[in-house]
Design a protein around this nucleic acid. Structure first.
Length: 318
DNA sequence: CACTTGACCTGTCCGC
DNA sequence: TGCGGACAGGTCAAGT
């Protein structure tokens, strides 16, 4: 998915775009994408006003005036795109003003019907929505829309009381936010102790250790700290944890500044891509020169994930 | 408990 | 061009 910098970018975009808007309708084409009881939707989503947009780890939180929150995980291919204009619905049925029951299916326009709906096919993403990856549409009373798109259907949207959000399993287990100003290198190193017998790549991807690091920033920060991803956590000296702490924060802050990484699908709340991949040092750069030493970057497999390294400079634990 | 692997999905790319 | 397999930003539920 979108990792911490991408979710943060979406959060900042939505914070500017949807606070104060009132929800008029909500529909889904896939009950797994939005598995909520129609009664909850009717009573706590429809007519609710958006009062805040937050992020915790890779999860987006849209707080509503009803004391309910939309909890959203984009997983691998999710997008959350705001479109501030009325569009043609094609075969999407927005009538009725309430959520269809959990078994209902909203027909999705086929390509020939969908293609010109709302704009010329050469227009940007926002003009082609909804499309075949659209899973949830939220319509606001001013005619604007929020689209949850997800090609692989791993992501989800859930509606729950705001006070219950911290109690869901993921929130109970998730580790500290690495960009919080008072989060220290010593705390960072301490978090890894219970994963001493696994690889640093597996440990840094573990959301219960540190929140928000995914495959891109794992590879980028391990390269920055000159640590081989296969190194066992218990073999890493404290000085290297200090380096890794600094690199995780530097890489993520740079990515936020660049609007995140668009490897394939990711776009921000306005449908635009991020440019961090132009600044990546190893991720998806196999066959190219290491920017530090010139050695050819290679791709290996660590912890079941594609992993990019410089075989010359990432020597710790090799 | 800690750790690893497969499953969840659709689309794309690569080799034959 | 077609077909099969591997792979893709993330998490879980199972296994050991």
């Amino acid at each position: 998915m979108p990792e911490l910098p991408e979710v943060e970018t979406v959060k900042r975009g939505l914070h500017k775009l949807i606070i104060g808007k009132i929800i008029k309708t909500a529909v889904t084409d896939n009950p797994k994408s939005f598995p909520n009881a129609p009664a909850d939707v009717k009573h706590f989503l429809i007519n609710a006003t958006v009062i805040d947009v937050r992020r915790r780890a890779k999860v987006l939180l849209i707080d509503l005036s009803t004391n309910y929150t939309l909890v959203i995980h984009l997983k691998m291919t999710g997008q959350l795109v705001f479109v501030n204009k009325n569009i043609e619905y094609g075969k999407w049925n927005m009538e009725g003003g309430e959520m269809p029951n959990s078994n209902s299916q909203i027909p999705i326009a086929n390509e020939s019907e969908n293609r010109f709906a709302g704009g010329h096919p050469n227009d940007s993403l926002v003009n082609s929505l909804p499309d075949k990856s659209t899973r949830v549409i939220i319509e606001f009373t001013d005619g604007s829309h929020l689209y949850f798109n997800d090609q692989r259907k791993f992501g989800w949207v859930r509606l729950m009381p705001t006070v219950e959000v911290p109690n869901i399993d993921f929130m109970r287990r998730v580790g500290p936010e690495p960009l919080e100003p008072d989060f220290t290198a010593a705390q960072f190193a301490e978090r890894f102790k219970r994963r001493a017998r696994t690889t640093i790549k597996a440990a840094i991807l573990d959301q219960s250790v540190i929140a928000g690091v995914g495959n891109i920033y794992a590879d980028e920060s391990l390269w920055g700290a000159k640590i081989h991803p296969s190194t066992l956590v218990g073999h890493i000296p404290y000085s290297k944890f200090q380096s890794l702490y600094t690199e995780v924060r530097a890489v993520m802050n740079l990515s936020i500044e660049k609007g995140g990484s668009t490897n394939r699908n990711y776009v921000n709340a306005e449908g635009k891509k991020g440019s961090y991949m132009d600044f990546a040092r190893v991720f998806r750069r196999e066959g190219l020169a290491c920017p530090r030493c010139g050695t050819e970057i290679i791709k290996i497999r660590v912890a079941g994930r594609g992993t990019h390294i410089c075989p010359s400079c990432q020597l710790v634990g090799k």
